[in-house]
């Protein structure tokens, strides 16, 4: 249980006043899947961050910010394969988030746990679940 602040996960978490329940059973990336929200040690400074996992080892991810609806902004379309033992971590608020686009893939060993719930006040408790669903593959004829 720890407080979180900052704009990087804006649609999911508020900027201030959010308390997160972190499951330490998922530390070191155990059982983490794409789409999970994780708390991790930021590799380039002494702080802790909360971001969403976009790629696990072996996945191909976009290295830069994707362009917005009008095709403006964003970087190149370079993609990399996430190396062994790493994951690609990006905030939900792409414009105000320092994440893997800045410091590259994060070692799974730096993951402290999975965010499983958020509490704003005693009345506002909600579970954080992975909203990605598997697409049913079309049956082959």
């Amino acid at each position: 249980m720890s407080p979180a602040s900052g704009p990087s996960m804006l649609p999911t978490f508020e900027v201030v006043g959010e308390w997160l329940l972190v499951s330490r059973l998922h530390r070191f990336g155990r059982g983490i899947e794409v789409g999970d929200v994780v708390a991790y040690n930021i590799p380039i400074n002494e702080e802790m961050g909360v971001k969403r996992v976009l790629g696990m080892p072996g996945d191909y991810v976009l290295m830069d910010t994707p362009p917005d609806g009008e095709g403006e902004g964003g970087g190149g379309g370079n993609m990399i394969q996430v190396p062994r033992g790493h994951c690609w971590i990006v905030g939900d608020n792409l414009a105000a988030s320092r994440d893997s686009r800045l410091f590259g893939p994060v070692p799974l060993a730096l993951i402290r746990g999975k965010v499983i719930a958020s509490v704003r006040s005693f009345s506002e408790f909600r579970w954080i679940t992975n909203t990605l669903r598997k697409v049913d593959s079309p049956s082959e004829p």
Binding site: F28, G85, L108, A109
Partner: peptide, 9 residues
């Protein structure tokens, strides 16, 4: 360094 970057265990 615990947890060699390739293998967190």
């Amino acid at each position: 360094f615990s947890r060699n970057p390739y293998d967190p265990n």
